[in-house]
Design a protein around this nucleic acid. Structure first.
Lengths: 122, 122
DNA sequence: CCGAATCCGGTTGGATACTG
DNA sequence: CAGTATCCAACCGGATTCGG
């Protein structure tokens, strides 16, 4: 079997990682944490995401109850996405991790360089 | 361009997610947080991991200075892995996320089921 | 404007066999 | 025991095109 196993362990952290492990999900949550936003506005600001991955990501987040989707009855239909309370709380938890990342990034970079310079790893 | 972009943003959270997003890394860290452990012992307890992925994961973690690798000069050579201080601190940050996961898993499961039952998603 | 469907290249990762 | 090397299938995700 190739690629990620996708085995449905009842291990809760697996469920979270299937969402947080996806960088697009994190970036989307971070972006929506600033306030509600529409599809193409997200698309522009997330920079690098394809419209397919944005759609897929938004649907996953919506499925998990992390964001809400509201269709505005305007002439050209607009859809506004926003973080739910659960999404907000996940954003907080991600913030912890982000803090760790910011704090330890220099050390990690240094260790990586040192490791790559070791002769016995070729 | 296929698969994960691997663009080397200096975005710190990307660096973390490249490690935490990998479920094997998290499981390995969680396992090592209980104490030092040898290769095949990890292999047995992590359950589901291939020896290739365990080797790859361990090398990544070592490269980032999250675990230490100690070769014991025994007759059949043994290698003991252990969390470094940095690994310990990451484990703590992951714990936050794990707590969130445990707390919200029931709600997420419910919302997922509800979402999947909606007729308009086919 | 929002999103779904199709195509397809590249990477991931499991199985297996082999080395020190 | 602790890995490395090769092979190959599955999946991810970008580009493009079409629908609502």
């Amino acid at each position: 079997m190739g690629a990620r196993r996708k085995l449905d362990y009842d291990c809760p952290i697996r469920d979270v990682l299937d969402r947080v492990g996806d960088a697009w999900s994190v970036l989307t949550i971070l972006e929506l944490s600033k306030g509600p936003c529409r599809f193409n506005a997200l698309r522009r600001v997330i920079d690098g995401i394809s419209q397919r991955m944005l759609a897929v990501t938004l649907r996953h987040l919506e499925r998990d109850g992390l964001i809400s989707r509201r269709v505005l009855p305007t002439a050209p239909p607009q859809v506004e996405y926003a973080l739910t309370d659960r999404g907000q709380s996940l954003h907080a938890a991600i913030g912890q991790l982000n803090g760790w990342a910011v704090e330890h990034q220099p050390g990690i970079r240094a260790d990586r360089a040192e490791y790559d310079a070791r002769p016995d790893v070729a």
